[in-house]
């Protein structure tokens, strides 16, 4: 009996041992096939096999993106009740509402990866997951609505357009929707700036002040320099990311500077000048200390933003519970009457 038992155990150990290299081999094969699909621009869909790292990277990136949309509602939401006329009020409200919509499209993409929306939101509230740092800057005047639409949404579009071709199907499809809607955002921002710049001296000064405060943070939105960006290479290979941070930043500066000049605004960078040989603008050094401080929680509004979102969730718990309880009661009632 004992001998039989030992034999069985031995057999199991043998099977286990022989399985490990086989499984590794299988995994390698799967990963190779996966990369081939990506190289051939075949989209990855939710139920397809994918490397765990690919899944985790996407969950992190898409949920960060979703959180950014939702936290991004707060700085602009700050001015809805003070918008200067009814048309602007409606436009701003519709714009901020779109951000909520974009958050939802993205959470919906995250959920296809097996992540739970509420879990990722809890990670946001606990500080485990970040969102775009730009939303940790305060909105101090009406002109900030213009600057955000023009610069922040402009930078976001530049980041997002390549993502419409991202290798993960649900993310790419969400981005197509988001990009379509974002272009209205940028235009309404630019329209606000144009009106201010054509207005009184006070209005022009308001526009310049907003531009001064948002220019550098907008450049930081593209993330660290390529040399310091730890996820970039793998993400490019997986086609989760399709252009580098520095490429996108340069592209943004090149298109935005002429727009600022058209508005008659001064770019708050003494080193900014056109470079004939590269056909790009040269620009000054970004304050990376400030960038990392804000990322790590020391921005002017980090605490307020997270507090506002946490409160919204906590204050909503009883509402969610009530709706579930009612739905449950309704099911019981239908069952009984059947």
């Amino acid at each position: 009996m004992l001998i039989l038992f030992v034999l069985i155990v031995l057999k199991h150990i043998f099977v286990l041992l022989s399985c490990v290299p086989m499984e590794n081999k299988n995994l390698e094969l799967l990963e190779e096939k996966f990369q081939q699909k990506i190289d051939q621009d075949i989209k990855i869909e939710p139920n397809d096999w994918m490397p765990d790292n690919y899944r985790q990277t996407l969950i992190r990136q898409i949920s960060q993106h979703a959180h950014s949309e939702v936290v991004g509602m707060l700085p602009e939401g700050n001015w809805i009740t003070r918008a200067p006329n009814l048309r602007r009020k409606a436009v701003l409200l519709a714009k901020v509402q779109d951000e909520a919509g974009h958050g939802l499209y993205l959470y919906s993409a995250v959920e296809t990866l097996g992540a739970d929306r509420e879990d990722t939101i809890d990670d946001l509230h606990s500080g485990k997951v970040k969102y775009s740092s730009i939303f940790n800057y305060p909105t101090l005047s009406w002109a900030d609505m213009g600057a955000i639409g023009w610069l922040v949404d402009g930078a976001a579009i530049m980041n997002q357009v390549p993502l419409c071709r991202c290798s993960y199907g649900p993310y790419a499809r969400a981005m197509v929707r988001v990009c379509k809607e974002e272009s209205f955002h940028q235009r309404q921002g630019f329209e606000i700036m144009t009106t201010l710049c054509k207005g009184t001296l006070e209005q022009k000064a308001m526009a310049q002040d907003a531009f001064n405060r948002f220019w550098w943070p907008a450049l930081m939105m593209f993330g660290p320099n390529d040399a310091d960006s730890k996820h970039s290479a793998q993400s490019m290979k997986w086609k989760i990311k399709r252009s580098t941070n520095d490429e996108l930043r340069q592209q943004f500066i090149d298109v935005t500077v002429p727009q600022a000049e058209l508005l008659g605004l001064t770019i708050p960078d003494a080193d900014l000048k056109w470079n004939e040989s590269t056909n790009h603008y040269d620009f000054g050094t970004i304050n990376w200390d400030e960038f990392w401080q804000v990322v790590n929680g020391n921005g002017p509004c980090n605490a307020e933003r997270i507090e506002a979102r946490t409160k919204a969730k906590e204050n909503g718990l009883w509402v969610r519970a009530a709706a579930m309880a009612h739905a449950e009661k309704q099911r019981e009632r239908t069952k009984q009457s059947a």
Partner: peptide, 18 residues
């Protein structure tokens, strides 16, 4: 409009804004 960004769940935020 004061609710915008503070709704009990994202879906309802959008509904109230509408």
């Amino acid at each position: 409009a004061e609710w915008c960004g503070h709704g009990p769940i994202l879906e309802e935020d959008i509904a109230m804004t509408n």
